[in-house]
């Protein structure tokens, strides 16, 4: 996870102010600005610097231009044309026109209010979505930092590597942390399996297999091996038919895909 100082020094804020970033990157900087006042201050200062820089070219336009521009804006404001004069002077025609105008104006006001509310709700929704994304990213980064802290700690060591000998790959690595007194696993590469099959992890304790849950392709980072059991002597992985999350029956021999005894230190 980048620190505020690293973000400032990366040059991304200058590129943001200069309009050189993609929409996604702009969004990223705007999120930083929302949550880190130092970054917001930095962006404002860069903007101010470029404003001051551009002032070297300041030049007074000719005086007549002001009225011309104001008139141009006034003209653009006139969004409706005057209604044609009512030819008939009968009261009914006059009243009908008046009612039509009042109704049109009422609908216009209602529509404008509705549009305003919709914009407001859309804006709020967008803000919430941005906040959600930022939180999601922060969670991912925290999880990564947490995992690194555990793995890199000298109290943590690898106790088993669940190797898929056929494919010559490692399915998962199992760690033991003396600090947290917990076993963790990290999936390295899942084997190719048919749709109707799953991989299940087992802890073998006192020669009894204990279900430790299904291994999923989508799981990233360290996962705690549950349940906690004493005297684990080995780990096994079965490839079995899809059923429930938990299994109460012991694995059949033909289902056992990997069996790895714990590495003694």
């Amino acid at each position: 996870m980048k620190t505020v100082q690293e973000i400032i020094e990366s040059g991304i804020l200058e590129e943001y102010v200069l309009g050189l970033l993609s929409d996604r990157e702009n969004q990223e900087v705007e999120n930083y600005m929302r949550y880190y006042p130092e970054i917001e201050k930095e962006v404002f200062e860069i903007q101010e610097t470029l404003y001051q820089y551009s002032l070297q070219y300041q030049k007074q336009p000719r005086p007549e231009l002001k009225n011309q521009i104001l008139a141009h804006i006034e003209t653009s404001k006139a969004t409706y044309t005057d209604p044609k004069p009512v030819k008939s002077n009968s009261f009914i025609a006059y009243a009908g026109t008046l009612i039509a105008i009042v109704l049109a104006l009422t609908f216009a006001v209602m529509w404008l209010n509705e549009a305003k509310n919709t914009r407001k709700v859309q804006q709020e929704l967008q803000n919430l979505q941005n906040k959600y994304k930022t939180c999601e990213n922060t969670c991912k980064e925290l999880k990564k930092a947490h995992d690194e802290l555990i793995i890199n700690d000298h109290n943590c060591h690898v106790i088993a590597k669940l190797k898929d000998d056929k494919a010559n790959t490692c399915l998962a690595t199992i760690y033991w942390s003396h600090l947290t007194k917990q076993a963790y696993y990290q999936i390295d590469k899942m084997p190719d399996m048919p749709e109707n099959k799953v991989c299940r992890l087992w802890c073998i304790s006192n020669k009894t297999p204990i279900d430790a849950g299904i291994l999923k392709n989508t799981e990233q980072g360290l996962r705690v091996v549950e349940p906690v059991c004493d005297n684990v002597e080995a780990f096994a992985v079965t490839i079995e038919d899809k059923a429930g999350e938990r299994r109460t029956t012991p694995p059949r021999p033909e289902e056992i895909f990997i069996y790895t005894p714990i590495q003694k230190k």
């Binding site: 002032l55 070219y57 300041q58 007074q60 002001k66 521009i69 104001l70 006034e74 404001k77």
Partner: peptide
Amino acid sequence: SSIISYLYDHYSHALYGIIV
């Protein structure tokens, strides 16, 4: 709309300068 006149008085020289 009166604020546009105010903005023009205070910022037109800066904006016009960089446009030119």
